[in-house]
């Protein structure tokens, strides 16, 4: 029994569509609107602040660098979470994120015997492309958080949340500027983002645990992970090449269906 109407149909039934704002409780007061604007304009500065702080800590050899930068990632991830929560998301925002995060975690579990196949980055990138930069960040951050419930939480969790979130966010930004219309750019981004992910995680290690930081020590720390990062990058490129178009079609189809769902609620 199919009862899925196609997206271009006009609703002819007079349902309660006019009087309900989809997903929104009430018209927010002016002060709360101001706060919302303030919080959402803080996203980019906070995203940039994390690597900036890492750099500053490394340069000045700050004593409590590990703790300071960790707190910064908490602030960054927290800001995105709070903004998402305040946007009173409807089903079309919530459901795709939930499914994609679950998919990323399940595939990470299923492919655990093949450590080089890490589809999480590819899924974050797709989420950013199809559902926008904020959803991209949410998918990345939540995937890291939830999959670590299976693989073990640690001080790396906030960093993975930040780094994968960033991968999704930047993918969203690039995609809105049409950068991915050229498939080469997509592949390059896939590779670079995986390297960047590794770079961020290694940098935290260097800043927090190498003291005093010297060039050879830092190089060693980065070098130790480079093989994994290149494998991760290659896997992401291969995965993206295989799934980008077919999954994009599937996701856009589901996006249209959810838009209808929200219109009816």
């Amino acid at each position: 029994m199919t009862r899925i109407p196609s997206p271009h149909d006009q609703a002819t039934v007079a349902m309660r569509e006019s009087d309900v704002v989809p997903g929104g409780p009430a018209v927010p007061a002016r002060s709360s609107r101001l706060l919302t604007r303030l919080l959402s304009s803080a996203e980019v500065p906070v995203l940039v602040a994390v690597p900036l702080l890492l750099g500053v800590c490394a340069y000045f050899q700050v004593d409590q660098a590990g703790l300071l930068t960790l707190i910064m990632t908490f602030v960054c991830v927290g800001l995105f979470f709070v903004n998402f929560e305040r946007s009173s998301p409807g089903l079309r925002q919530v459901m795709p994120i939930v499914v994609l995060v679950a998919l990323a975690c399940a595939v990470r579990i299923l492919f655990a015997p093949f450590p080089s196949v890490k589809p999480v980055s590819a899924i974050c990138i797709l989420a950013g492309v199809v559902f926008g930069r904020r959803s991209g960040f949410m998918v990345g951050a939540l995937s890291a958080l939830v999959s670590n419930f299976f693989f073990g939480q640690g001080p790396w969790t906030p960093w993975q949340m930040y780094a994968w979130g960033l991968v999704g966010y930047v993918a969203g930004v690039l995609s809105t500027h049409g950068a991915f219309e050229h498939r080469g750019v997509l592949s390059v981004y896939g590779f670079v983002s995986a390297l960047g992910y590794g770079f961020i995680l290694n940098s935290w290690y260097v800043v927090a645990y190498v003291h005093p930081i010297t060039v050879p020590a830092a190089l060693l720390a980065y070098g130790a992970g480079i093989v994994f990062d290149i494998m991760h990058g290659t896997a992401t490129v291969v995965f993206l090449a295989a799934i980008y178009l077919p999954w994009k079609v599937k996701l856009e189809r589901i996006q249209r269906k959810y838009a209808l769902c929200d219109a009816k609620t």
Partner: peptide, 15 residues
Amino acid sequence: LPTIGLMLSMIMRFV
């Protein structure tokens, strides 16, 4: 964060 809490619960249902 009730919405994100619910989403986490849903994700844990799906995984």
